[in-house]
Design a protein around this nucleic acid. Sequence first.
DNA 1: CTTGCTGCAAAAGATTTGCACGTGC
DNA 2: GCACGTGCAAATCTTTTGCAGCAAG
Lengths: 147, 147
Amino acid sequence: MSGDRATIQFLLEHLESAGKRSTPQRHAVCQALVEHGGHPTVAEIFERVRHTFPMISQATVYNTIDTLLDLGLIRPLELTSHEHTHYDLDLSPHVNLACTSCGQIHDVHSPLLDTLLDQLSGHSGYQIDRRTALVAYGLCPACKKPL
Amino acid sequence: MSGDRATIQFLLEHLESAGKRSTPQRHAVCQALVEHGGHPTVAEIFERVRHTFPMISQATVYNTIDTLLDLGLIRPLELTSHEHTHYDLDLSPHVNLACTSCGQIHDVHSPLLDTLLDQLSGHSGYQIDRRTALVAYGLCPACKKPL
DNA sequence: CTTGCTGCAAAAGATTTGCACGTGC
DNA sequence: GCACGTGCAAATCTTTTGCAGCAAG
């Protein structure tokens, strides 16, 4: 169940070693990503950053997130039941459990997943990206009970 | 590896038993979905249907697909590396392997997946939807080799 | 200095919606 | 005949892009 979430240091260091400039805006976006704690959307990051950086442009948030994605420092989560793209700071192989009722997203790590991915590689011949995000849908414990 | 793909009969029967009207447009959309054979997008279905039904509206295709989704007769596949939403006619638990190079999508059935989903249910307390589509990314055998 | 980054605003592109007409039942 | 489904076009909403000015290295 332990995570492997990126920290601000991790993000900024990798940005710099990739030759990207260290700007206040990028720092703010990275900070917002990390402090969000969950699986934020661009809109959520934009709102968060605006609190401390009111003049930031939406385009800059998109640019920064695209840069982080290109460098593989975060990964996108496409959730059928959610309208926006969420981002995951945990790059280790795990399953994202998404509640179809309340929208909460829960990270679950399981050794079986590694076995499954290995088996898939063998059977299919695919060279599977270990950072693949697997999303499973269901009802979380709270929503399972009568509302 | 065997699939469990919906047939035209399956789709039309379930539409009717849900009290939905049987229209030529819906028939055409269902036929296009099944005959596509893979994991079509709305745009691909629209194009296909236009061949035999030139005056059909894009909105009708979206409406029909939404109806099928509501009834759980098809399911959406959100693919990070693809711009459009693809749809899957195979409702059994399986993994969709998506090639990040050529975009091809491969269905893989594995008993391990069932075990994994069971284990996830137990550990997390989630009531997991068995129709959940798990998407894994990687390079397909063809793209793995030097291009 | 020089190039990359930012901000603004407009554009692009997919999906949704409103409404009047047509059609299945 | 009535309600639902369709077609058309406009609206909506997220994400992208062009460009001028600024700032990091």
